[in-house]
């Protein structure tokens, strides 16, 4: 498996009130062609920033992003604009992602117009094809405005727009967290189906481990801008090495009253990313933390085959 996307030592910094906020600190990841990499973490952990930094929508302050052998971090202007067509993005809020004053047909055709497909007939044919692929009836849908549709239908439209140019990599940023449970399953199944049909590579960003597990081959866990753990999905669920991964797993509410909720989960909340703890950023909530964790930033190292964790005292 060759890496389609490789992220090396990526750092994204914001200036917040004169202070530097490291939204993403020194993250390295690879996504193989045809693979789905799940990226998990709580709000403020930098997972969405990472997604946008890959597309250069937010310029990284350090590190490199290489897509299919081209270094995106070095591209500019026209070259970057052309490259972006091979990478697409799907957002959390499907309704806000659609221009409220343009018709669905217009919105889905927009990528074709931008890439210079002049022939109206061809545009319409391709719009109809992709709408059918995402399970919408083109005749009923094309002339309408976004507000006439439910969240789930809007997400289908967003997926259609992202797929019409047949991209290679799609970054899904919390694509189902704004949707109801029954609709969520439809969209997850649709993404899986689209992945197969269009031969996509997915970077799937979400806060819900169960949702990520349903679609991912490998999972990366982030906490306060840093990578905690990366590994094959089933292995990571069966034997989490990082205490934070274990905490996330325990915190998932299980729809079964015979499973009592885990008591006394790690107290506290993630500290402010403006003022992260020294050493390991999870140490303030970690039951295993000691002086080493405060002094030394743990490096990502291989715990088991293909499973990497950044922890001085890994579990298991």
């Amino acid at each position: 498996m060759t890496a389609l996307l490789s992220i090396e030592n990526l750092t994204v910094e914001y200036a917040v009130g004169g202070k530097a906020l490291f939204a993403v600190s020194d993250v390295s990841l690879e996504v193989g062609r045809g693979e789905t990499l799940g990226l998990v973490g709580e709000s403020g952990c930098g997972k969405s920033t990472l997604g946008r930094a890959v597309l250069q929508l937010r310029r990284p302050t350090g590190g490199r992003v290489t897509f299919d052998g081209t270094e995106l971090t070095r591209l500019d202007g026209e070259a970057l604009r052309l490259m972006r067509r091979r990478l697409q993005l799907i957002f959390q809020d499907p309704i806000a992602s659609l221009n409220p004053r343009r018709s669905i047909g217009d919105i889905v055709a927009e990528p074709l117009v931008i890439t210079g497909v002049v022939d109206r007939g061809e545009r319409e044919r391709r719009v109809r094809d992709v709408l059918a692929a995402v399970g919408l009836d083109a005749d009923l849908v094309m002339g309408r405005l976004p507000h006439e549709f439910s969240g789930g239908q809007c997400q289908r439209i967003c997926i259609a727009r992202a797929l019409i140019l047949e991209p290679e990599l799609v970054i899904c940023d919390e694509p189902v967290s704004a949707l109801d449970v029954s609709i969520r399953a439809q969209i997850l199944n649709l993404l899986e189906d689209m992945k197969r049909r269009y031969g996509l590579t997915l970077l799937f960003i979400a806060h819900d481990l169960a949702v990520v597990k349903a679609v991912s081959d490998r999972i990366a866990v982030m906490y306060l801008g840093r990578l905690c753990e990366v590994g094959p999905t089933e292995q990571l669920f069966a034997r989490p090495a990082h205490p934070y991964t274990a905490l996330l797993l325990e915190a998932i509410p299980v729809p079964d009253p015979t499973v009592k909720p885990a008591a006394n989960l790690a107290a506290g909340e993630p500290p402010s990313p403006l003022d992260p703890p020294s050493g390991c950023r999870f140490r303030t909530r970690c039951p295993r933390a000691d002086q080493t964790c405060a002094d030394v930033v743990p490096e990502l190292r291989e715990i088991a085959v293909g499973q990497f964790a950044a922890c001085h005292h890994p579990l298991g």
Binding site: H207, A263, L265, A266, E269
Partner: peptide
């Protein structure tokens, strides 16, 4: 967030 959700429910 999930970890906070569990705390609040508790």
């Amino acid at each position: 967030d999930v970890t906070v959700q569990a705390q609040i429910l508790d």
